[in-house]
Design a protein around this nucleic acid. Structure first.
Lengths: 289, 289
DNA sequence: AAATTAGGGTCAGGAAAACTAAGCCATGCC
DNA sequence: GGCATGGCTTAGTTTTCCTGACCCTAATTT
């Protein structure tokens, strides 16, 4: 019963947030990704927390970590608390700037689907300011400060565009493509994140060729190259529609493979009728299936 | 509808906490006191928040601040969220160290009332470790990491000791004190925080003398000086009982003024039956009125 | 009117926290 | 065996956070 020397200090908020994320996502690496820091930072935070408590929150295993009984018992409360905090922050933001809508989406979608729709949106609701952030993966809408999230998915949210894949190329190149087998003779562009698109289409078309060509890390860049005649790209209907309509790209083969996933729009919170978010959703849903 | 350049970042947690405290307590100075920082730090945090939002949270007035409509609308949600966070932290602490009880109290109470009771507590529950923190003012139990708070108050909590004031001094000095009027002839010790005690007693005793003597910032120090014969101290029954019982101090006059406030014990949370906190409360309540 | 008090705002500087980068280790899978 | 995954460690750097000293204003006191 000694009078403990250290005056009790509240545990640091950032460390608690790191613990919560790690507990919820089941790993330090995943938590680091969500928080936008390196895994080392999460390691340090959790360690500081455990030191302050004098008890372990995770069991370290060769591959990954697992919550201890203590950690598991505590995690839920923190998740709720940080959810409440994020909600409060969202309310604050919405009231502070009610005419600003934050949208998170893939870079390719931002550039090839969303961007072409902005002029119409601006015309329909000039008072609304849309802020677009390109992310590689869908954000945690309960936490990240976005109002809308627009990502490809098979279910959930609101479907704003169906998708299908099929080869596209510049008109000049199309002359050399009579049959799918001709693809072996031209460069076949592909995107690193959507590497499976070619296999998907080739299998559906019953073609055995193995296409070769440059790989891009940005789909929009691959599209640009296709427009420039650099090769044949596996096009996503939702993303090349504009170029097809303008004749800058054409589809040399009739076969299309419908994808199970379409472009889907999630709202972070219930949208008040008439709010800026609701108006944006309405506009983006125009022409949806 | 421009694509806003800054990628939206979550607002800093510490700034949100500062805003919440300022909103709840109605001022930056009060918030700074609760958070244990200087007012300038709170100013900076709120300013950073307002800058990030592009909107004001407080109206600055010559004397103090007032929440704007925006700030008032947002504050409640943050208070709830931080309350939830504090609860989660308390659960974590309690599970991590179930045999440790953190008590917050006045320095004088810690030394003169609590400390003498610790040996009995240790004997009754040797497995429990009591950590005592001396504070000048009662903490916000919903937030600060204490299990128990022991402070003088007229209502609330659980009364563990009544209090009364009356002059006390070393036996050697008592010979010179036949009537209250004799107080004018000896040094009268007083504590800076309890400056009104003398007036209270003198009024009740119907004495018109104006006592003079050294002022202490620590009541325990004043008691020590009184024991050493440095003068007459306005004694608090609850705090000088031990010295009176041992004959190191005596009360030269029979008049006692009962105080409306007694020593009261608050628990931060409901105490599970049989928990360490419950045991400590039980022991400290022994002999309570 | 002058002084005092109470509450904020501002700024420079310094301490502490947070983060990154790079390398290490162990395990499990191909 | 080789590689990938996931976490740990350390050193060094950036950023945040806070203090301390000062100024400002309005209300209250003298």
């Amino acid at each position: 019963m000694p009078v403990a020397p250290p005056p009790p200090k509240s545990l640091p908020l950032t460390a608690l947030r790191a613990f919560e994320a790690a507990a919820r996502l089941g790993g330090f690496t995943a938590a680091a990704a969500e928080l936008g820091v390196t895994p080392g930072a999460v390691t340090a935070h959790v360690k500081a927390l455990e030191e302050g408590l004098g008890a372990a929150l995770f069991e370290r295993q060769s591959k990954g970590v697992r919550l201890t009984a203590l950690g598991a018992a505590a995690a839920g409360g923190f998740t709720e608390a940080f959810d409440a905090l994020a909600r409060a922050e969202a309310v604050l933001r919405a009231r502070a700037a009610p005419q600003v809508v934050h949208v998170a989406t893939l870079p390719a979608i931002a550039q090839l689907w969303l961007s072409p729709r902005l002029p119409a949106l601006r015309a329909a609701a000039p008072e609304i300011s849309v802020s677009i952030t390109a992310l590689e993966a869908p954000p945690n809408l309960k936490r990240a400060p976005y109002d809308l999230s627009l990502f490809p998915a098979a279910t959930g949210g609101r479907l704003v565009a169906v998708d299908a894949v099929f080869p596209v190329c510049a008109p000049a190149l199309a002359d050399r493509l009579r049959r799918p087998e001709d693809l072996a003779a031209v460069p076949c562009l592909s995107d690193a994140a959507w590497a499976g698109d070619w296999d998907l289409w080739l299998a559906a078309a019953g073609v055995a060729v193995r296409p070769r060509g440059p790989v891009f890390s940005l789909y929009a860049l691959a599209v640009e190259e296709a427009v420039n005649g650099a090769g044949v790209l596996m096009g996503h209907a939702a993303l090349v529609a504009d170029h097809l309509a303008r004749g800058r790209l054409i589809a040399p083969f009739p076969q299309r493979v419908a994808l199970p996933q379409g472009l889907r729009l999630w709202s972070a919170r219930p949208m008040p009728r008439g709010s800026a978010v609701a108006r944006v959703v309405e506009e983006l849903s125009r022409g949806a299936p």
